[in-house]
């Protein structure tokens, strides 16, 4: 990201306003029993760039992520996506509007082929309607177009030799790639990646990073959850750091690297090693 990008003049402050944000969050809270898992006062996710959501384990990143995608309901708060109300909206509706997510533990569809995984993601398919499904001529052309796009994407993600394999037969890294390719198949405007590099070997990490930057270069916005600092510094344009459910810092990677609150949050909690209280 060049220094003269749209975020060049934005101050590194929590809740700072950005030019033309794609996602705007206000007062979102989520409690589990007595525990406040997420408590975000105001956050704007910029458009057309890669935003990283970081924080130590148990910071509430994934919970926040699930709330934004409609997979969990908050106790309070609202947010908009592309200027439209997005709080209380069902996840599949958000996905159709262009907010497409992946999962921390990949959710490839095991007993479906790689190609079927891709085709499933095609947007607004006529053949998904019950009665039209019985009349193939009404959806055959669309299917052919989707097929072509799916093959293109699989080629780009170097999965084309696995087209007819069952997804469950893929390695962990291949599944991450497939999930990302599938998300692209759904023609998103905002790609939400939940720890896309988790459990992936270093060589594949490089390739995944390349794919993520390519998304931005094609004009999509990316919001991804990650806790590997190296990854974040390499590719993100903007970083949001959470701890104990709150946003404690925002800024360009360079701003975050020197932020005292972030350093304290990371050092204050045992990072790495055992799995600690990540809310699931």
């Amino acid at each position: 990201m060049p220094a003269d990008g749209p975020l060049a003049d934005v101050a590194a402050e929590v809740g700072v306003a950005k030019p033309d944000p794609i996602l705007v969050v206000d007062g979102v809270e989520r409690r589990y029993g007595g525990l406040m898992a997420v408590d975000v006062e105001h956050l704007e996710v910029p458009r057309g760039v890669i935003t990283a959501l970081i924080g130590p384990n148990g910071a509430g990143k994934t919970t926040f992520f699930n709330l934004l995608c409609g997979f969990d309901r908050p106790d309070a708060g609202r947010w908009t996506f592309q200027g439209q109300e997005a709080s209380g909206v069902k996840p599949h509706v958000l996905a159709r509007r262009g907010m497409v997510r992946t999962f921390q533990l990949t959710k490839t569809l095991g007993r479906m082929t790689v190609l079927d995984n891709m085709l499933l993601a095609g947007k607004d398919q006529a053949g998904e309607a019950f009665w039209r499904a019985l009349v193939p001529p009404t959806w055959r052309d669309q299917e052919a177009a989707n097929l072509e796009r799916a093959h293109d994407l699989l080629g780009r993600f170097k999965l084309d030799h696995l087209t007819d394999e069952y997804a469950a037969g893929l390695s962990g890294g291949q599944r991450k790639l497939l999930e990302m390719a599938r998300a692209l198949m759904a023609e998103p405007t905002l790609v939400m990646l939940d720890e896309p590099m988790a459990g992936v070997n270093p060589a594949l990490t490089q390739s995944l990073l390349g794919h993520v930057t390519a998304l931005r270069d094609e004009g999509m916005s990316v919001l991804f959850v990650e806790h590997d600092m190296d990854v974040i510094m390499t590719i993100s344009d903007w970083v949001v750091c959470m701890a104990e459910g709150r946003v404690i810092a925002e800024g360009r990677p360079a701003d975050i690297a020197g932020n005292d609150a972030v350093i304290e949050a990371y050092l204050g909690i045992d990072h790495g090693g055992t799995v600690t209280g990540e809310i699931r």
Partner: peptide, 22 residues
């Protein structure tokens, strides 16, 4: 048909199907 594809995806993982707009 694509309809059946969605059914199978629900069998495999409902959340994945939701995340893809179904």
């Amino acid at each position: 048909s694509p309809f059946g594809r969605v059914l199978r995806s629900i069998r495999e993982d409902e959340d994945a199907a939701k995340a893809l707009g179904k």
